[in-house]
């Protein structure tokens, strides 16, 4: 994979200022994405913690672990379901 700064191909050359700007944008975008992913993980962890974990013990019980992983799986299913249905509704609405 090439680095952020390698945008000079394709006919026109780019000033170093432009490519620095692009590199910075890509970097900031990546950092934002990191934070967004972390926020999503945190949010889902809280939800599944509330749903699955009782009194904190020396370890998570097998049931709790299974519940947490099911919780995360079903959350993804649910958000996919919601998105697909929303997409379908908006397609149907256009006819």
């Amino acid at each position: 994979m090439s680095g952020f700064g390698d945008f000079s191909g394709g006919g026109h050359s780019m000033s170093s200022e432009d490519s620095a700007q692009l590199e910075m944008q890509a970097f900031i975008e990546a950092e934002n994405q990191k934070a967004a992913i972390q926020a999503a993980i945190s949010k889902l962890t809280e939800t599944c913690w509330d749903k699955c974990v009782g009194k904190p013990g020396a370890r998570l019980s097998g049931g709790e672990q299974e519940c947490i992983s099911n919780c995360a799986e079903r959350f993804i299913d649910t958000s996919q379901f919601v998105m697909q249905r929303m997409a379908k509704l908006s397609v149907d609405g256009n006819h």
């Binding site: 889902l44 962890t45 904190p56 998570l60 992983s69 995360a72 993804i76």
Partner: peptide, 24 residues
């Protein structure tokens, strides 16, 4: 004691969640 266990369990929970998200 409870808070200590709670912290550890919460981190475990977070790991399970992030592993699940990653594999999906």
């Amino acid at each position: 004691d409870c808070s200590m266990k709670c912290m550890d369990r919460f981190v475990e929970t977070m790991n399970i969640v992030s592993d699940t998200l990653r594999s999906r």
